[in-house]
Every structure is written in structure tokens, then in C-alpha cells.
Design a protein around this nucleic acid. Structure first.
Lengths: 155, 155
DNA sequence: TTCCAATTGAGAACAGAAGTCAAATCAACC
DNA sequence: GGTTGATTTGACTTCTGTTCTCAATTGGAA
């Protein structure tokens, strides 16, 4: 899927969500969403706010929070709480599968991975305990190659 | 290990930590720790505060937080942040191995599990990405048997 | 017992997130 | 295109879990 197709697919999902909930499309939301989709990283509301401040200084932090909430409810974004105290939002593209995270405890870098075998074992564990799983979270914390090499160990 | 032995082992670890860091033993800390070890569950600071309020109304919430921090640093407690917004502390007994959690999204019940095979696969993933892992977090969210049966789905 | 650093409880301070509200904006209708 | 009314905005306040501050108290080595 090309970046343009992705933007288009997101736009459709977003519009459908607005219509379904009687919400309106606004220029602020357009700007925020475009920027969010472009930077596929794991952004916090504050980081997104900072990223937009230069070009669009009038957009308030509250609007960022509200838009990210809409995106989350529309299934376009996913909330991620790592161990640094605040919520990050990751882009959940139209053809993205579930994945988990490797988090560097020194530089904060986040890498994604997917492992079908681990997921299968999780199902197995849930079955044994009689739980009906509908979500899970797996995070591996440690040093990324760069930080391990340079001997860093704090953020 | 009998409950008494556990209390004794914890006491020793705790005392060693105090000595090593030039800290003092106080009655408040004794009370908090005894209660914390007794209830092996996944308590938040506020829940512990509430549990102690009746018998020891003079103990402040700040002291609970401070004591839990000491216990965490001494390796007796472990911080757990599930998705309900606040920190829970779980007892990390002298002979406890690492384990992960099944969390019921309806009633909040937490069950522990251990799976060597999953841990092995995690190591494998980390190796492929060149990360040096020193911690991880695996949480499975869903409905516990009771809540699934009774059709509950909210907390 | 004396003495001083560590600890306490109460309340203030903090930070991320969410709520409030008057002014601005969107979009359906004429 | 203009009118209209509900939605949205940004600035601000509020909320909540957690940490800090500080004067008063306590622990324990000498």
C-alpha cells in the first residue's frame, strides 16, 4: 500500500466514524491526523503538540487529546503505555497486524515485532486458566544495539 | 516455605537494605510491610492505605508510598502498571520466580502464570533485534471464567 | 540521656489528562 | 449565498495519582 493509499484509507475510516457519531470534520483535526499518520512512530500527545506548534501554533493541546481519542475509538490509533509515565499513540494502519514492542531503556527507541508462536502460546495459557482473551500487551525492556555498544544505560 | 519463614526472610532482606542505605526502622514501616506481605495480592497504594486506615488511622498516604518505594528498591515488591491508570505493587517473595499476568477487564481479578517457552521465544526475538533484554512485561486482558459466564464486560 | 539525621503526617505541588465555557466554525437547510 | 443551531475550539480550570516540602517527631548510636 502506497503512502497515498494509506492516507486515503485512513480518511475513509475517519469520515465514516464522524458520520456514524454525528461529528464534524474540522481543519484542526485534518492537520493533526495528517501529521499523525505521516509520523508512524509512537507519539505522545505532547510530542505531537510540539511537532505542530511551529506550523500551527494556534492548535491547542486539548484538541490534540480530543483528536487522538477519536482516532483511537475509530481504530486508527492505539494507546500504548510504556514505563515512562505517559500515553503514546501508535498508528494502526489499514493493513497492520498485531505486534509487540522492544523498548530501549536508555534512548527510548521502540521497535516492533510480531511472533505468531508467542501468540499461540498465550492463547494456550488463557485456555488453561479459562480466560477469554481479547487483548494483550508484551513489552521487552533492555538496551538497543546502539546503546549497548556505547555503554549507555540511562535515558 | 511457611508464612512465618516468609515474613522472616522479608524482614532480613528489609533490614539489610536499611542498613546498607543508612535508613531507620520505624513502627509505621513495620505495620505497612506486615500488612503488605500478608495480602499477597496486587495492591495499589490507596488500597493499602484503606486497608490500614481502620486499625492505624494515623498512618499517612505519603508514608505508604515511601515504604512501597523502599520495598521495591529492596526487591521485596514489584511495581505493576496495568491499564487502569494506577500503580499496583505485588509481593515478590524470597522464592518467587518471574511470572506474568492474566487481567480480567470486567472485575479486575489478576492471575499469575509462568511459561518458560514464551520466555525463551522472547530471548530469541531480542537476539534477532540485537537488544539486550533485562526486563519484560506480558499481560493478557480478557474475561475471567466467572465474568465470561455471567456475561459481565465492564468494571 | 543526648543529639542529629532520618522519618513522619498534612498539605501543597506536580504532571498528564480531561472537563468547562464563551467564542468560533461547520454543514444542513432554505 | 445567507441563516441557524449544534459541534468544536483554545484557554483555562479541574481532576487524579503520585511526589515534594516542612515543621515536628522519632530512632538509635554514642
Amino acid at each position: 500500500m502506497s503512502p497515498h493509499d494509506v492516507q486515503e484509507a485512513v480518511r475513509q475510516t475517519y469520515q465514516a466514524y464522524l458520520t456514524r457519531h454525528g461529528l464534524k470534520s474540522t481543519v484542526q483535526r485534518e492537520i493533526i491526523i495528517k501529521r499523525f499518520v505521516k509520523s508512524r512512530g509512537h507519539l505522545s500527545a505532547d510530542e505531537l503538540y510540539a511537532a505542530l506548534r511551529e506550523e500551527h501554533p494556534s492548535i491547542g493541546l486539548a484538541t490534540i487529546y480530543r483528536t487522538l481519542k477519536i482516532l483511537t475509538e475509530a481504530g486508527i490509533a492505539r494507546e500504548q503505555r510504556f514505563n515512562d509515565g505517559f500515553t503514546r499513540y501508535e498508528f494502526n494502519g489499514p493493513d497492520d497486524r498485531h505486534h509487540d514492542h522492544l523498548v530501549c531503556t536508555a534512548c527510548g527507541r521502540v521497535e516492533e515485532f510480531e511472533n505468531r508462536e508467542i501468540e499461540r502460546l498465550q492463547e494456550e495459557v488463557a485456555n488453561i486458566h479459562g480466560f477469554a482473551i481479547n487483548d494483550h500487551k508484551l513489552e521487552l525492556y533492555g538496551l538497543c544495539p546502539d546503546c549497548a555498544r556505547s555503554g549507555r544505560n540511562v535515558g
